[in-house]
Design a protein around this nucleic acid. Structure first.
Lengths: 192, 192
DNA sequence: TCCGGTTTGGAATGGTCGGTCCAGACAAGA
DNA sequence: TCTTGTCTGGACCGACCATTCCAAACCGGA
């Protein structure tokens, strides 16, 4: 069995993820990907399939990273802080100059979810997972007294998700940390 | 001066707007536009300029329609209802089957605003205008007793904007009216 | 009826798209 | 050292991209 793989599949996939994240699906050409992944065309198609399959792999990889991020917050912070950290993770990445990439999943929600059922399923699943995370944190917070007892779990979790998605839109159009911080503060007020 | 214009410029621009709205900038080809506008290539370039200029015209046209819509709500409804109507306008357009187009401005915010300063300016301006509209309605509502007196104007207006943008993301990824209605209800709770 | 200037449909342009292909580079086992 | 089968680089493919161009169609005024 001569000559095994010549490049790191996951590292190259991460490069592709960065490219799709920054520019979107349609605006990223296969030539862009060949250049930025450092993998030649032939190997790229042999390893990942066509452009759409590569995009799906990148999206699933991003989704796993998101899942790990939430699990980390849940393990290391109080329920209330675990919620706040999600907002802050996206607000902190906003650079002083120039627009940020926002959230790859949300960018994809608007570009592709409406026309591609398979992608919509992944995006909707991720959003439902974040919603469930919020609900879980609210329940834990109510149990520990960290969050007011009269807060309605499901309704508030949905409201927080909407506020978060709003932040993820504004990150791309009005990358102003003080604006985003104010929205986070308003969103967190629901927990009082 | 023989032979004036052969087609309705605004009607054709509306057709282009529909196409860009449904599929986005990159995924809409000039051939698509020639087909759906019913205007041939030459006239199209002569009248609107290149693809980006046509897109900008469509975006500005959409922005004017949005402005008219808000002005109508403001004139015809109580402050609280004028806020609710904005949410409902987007929730109602969700079809029973298949995804909806959401808000053209928000779709554009995620696809293009991060990389195109001119487009970012239009998008950010529209978002600021909606925010100002919410603030104005809150102030009017507080004055008339329609909205609780202890509501903070600027913070709440921003929070409402974020919730609205969240709805405009979910409209494309989870087009479920009951979910969107619940988020609207949660957003409106800020005014109690 | 014919003329003038505009608009029209569609051919043509050069470039880039996603995707395929293959001759040769390569490393492990013989 | 030679065989073997995989992987590499880049040429290549037809299709489609945005854009330009022009001859023919057209209609109001003379």
């Amino acid at each position: 069995m001569p000559w095994e793989k010549q490049f790191d599949k996951q590292a190259a996939l991460d490069k592709a993820l960065q490219a799709f994240w920054a520019r979107g699906y349609e605006a990223t050409s296969m030539q862009d990907l060949v250049d930025c992944m450092g993998v030649n065309r032939g190997s790229l198609y042999a390893t990942y399939g066509d452009k759409r399959a590569l995009f799906l792999s990148a999206l699933r990889s991003y989704d796993q990273a998101r899942r790990r991020m939430l699990a980390g917050f849940e393990a290391r912070h109080s329920p209330r802080d675990a919620i706040r950290r999600v907002f802050q993770a996206f607000i902190e990445q906003v650079p002083e100059k120039g627009g940020s990439r926002g959230c790859f999943m949300t960018n994809t929600a608007l570009e592709l979810a409406a026309h591609d059922p398979e992608i919509r399923k992944i995006v909707a699943g991720a959003q439902e997972d974040v919603e469930a995370y919020f609900a879980r944190m609210i329940r834990k917070g109510k149990a520990s007294g960290d969050i007011a007892a009269d807060v309605k779990v499901a309704e508030t979790a949905r409201g927080l998700l909407a506020s978060l998605l709003g932040v993820l839109v504004l990150v791309r159009s009005r990358p102003d940390k003080s604006l985003l911080q104010a929205i986070m503060t308003d969103a967190m007020r629901r927990l009082h």
